[in-house]
Amino acid sequence: MAEVLVVVEHSGGAAKKITSELLTAARALGEPSAVVFGAAGDADKLKDTLGEYGAQKIYAAESADVTDYLVAPRAEVLAGLVKQASPAAVLLASTTDGKEIAGRLAVKIESGFLTGVTELAADGTATQVVFAGAVIVKSKVTKGTPILTIATNAVTAEPAAATPSVEAVEVSVSDAAKKAKVADRVSEKKSSRPELTEASIVVSGGRGVGSAENFALIEGLADSLGAAVGASRAAVDSDFYPPPHQFQVGQTGKTVSPNLYVAVGISGAIQHRAGMQTSKTIVAINKDEEAPIFELADFGVVGDLFKVVPQATEAINARKG
């Protein structure tokens, strides 16, 4: 069986959830070979997790030359690996970095690429959801080695134990690929709540929440459920829940697909729905019974969030107690 290159998403040697989803998707096409970009030792730290989800081999590209510059060096190393391994496909996460690496690699190796893939069939047919979730498209790469970026939370990760061998990759990056230097990385994370895109429950507040202080209500409900907190763009623009990008759900924010999405004081504009409508169960609280969010909701409460949310939070906490 042919190799499938899978670019590992990790932070300092700890795999992100999407990595197991990528390895699972890759197994439909061939034998996954994980590609680790990072600092010395990262591949070893990741070995167990990558093996658990079926990686047969790990290419370790551990060098400051790949971590200190934006995107381009990773595309260059991947192009080299494609030449060496002749894989059946290259899979990446559909993140900003992943999509940009995919585009650069496509130009380099003259191959087609598809982004935001939610399902991958054994014959390489990829499903994508477009136009804010309104249309489902099936596409296929018709030239070269297919390069596919996979949406987060779209594929259900399934373990398939393997014992990967680790192969160090000789990293030599051209000067052309070192033009954009990463001078600093800054985290603005301010709580220990789960990461929005990885959380299995998300509670989001909109303009209806009314103020930054009132967002404590959303946080309270989120904490009773062990959930991440999200916000609509109107809430973010009104500075109810900064910093802007970290919590915004929607077309220009993050796409989430949790088991449960709770929309509080959110009208459900198309651009908001674009980021949450593949959630498995959707619950909405809104005082306007005509709010479009109810078209998506499995369960909706038409009422004042300042009454409904505290009652719900209390009832959940009481169940736990």
Partner: peptide, 19 residues
């Protein structure tokens, strides 16, 4: 889905649904 008006028990009904 189901849409219920809040008649003082909207929060509890929501939690019953989650259960």
């Amino acid at each position: 889905g189901v849409k219920v008006p809040d008649e003082g028990d909207g929060g509890s009904k929501l939690v019953e649904f989650l259960a």
